[in-house]
């Protein structure tokens, strides 16, 4: 199982659909994708994690890095995740307080805080 990435634009948001396993080996690919999007001027990102089977701290680190980058441009990074075993990792690291986590892409795309 590798990492799959696809992006699409919904209004002023860029949705990054992630599938597979995000770990120490695959996380650099996600990092590159996020860096590229921000460099291209996409500052409002929605990372859809519904297709993610596995996430570790390296993946968390990449998401935190992405968040720092978009915030430097007054942007946002929202996550879509309903999977309990993935949510648990955000919870035990305290990152549920850092990332807005949504139930659906629709919800994340329309969210404005």
């Amino acid at each position: 199982m590798d990492l799959s990435l696809s992006t699409r634009t919904v209004g002023d948001r860029t949705v990054v659909e992630v599938g597979g396993e995000i770990d120490v080996y695959t996380a650099p690919k996600l990092r590159e994708q996020l860096v590229e999007l921000v460099n291209d001027g996409n500052y409002h990102l929605v990372v859809d994690m519904e297709g993610v089977d596995f996430l570790d701290s390296t993946g968390l680190g990449v998401l935190v890095g992405g968040l720092k980058r978009v915030r430097a441009h007054e942007g946002s990074l929202r996550l879509v995740c309903n999977q309990e075993h993935i949510l648990k990792i955000f919870r035990i690291t305290g990152l549920t307080k850092v990332f807005p986590i949504h139930n659906s892409v629709d919800d994340a795309v329309s969210a404005t805080d």
Partner: peptide, 14 residues
């Protein structure tokens, strides 16, 4: 070091 700390936080949390 931050990633190291995050990794250890996951282990000790689990």
């Amino acid at each position: 070091e931050d990633e190291d700390a995050l990794g250890l936080a996951v282990i000790t949390g689990l």
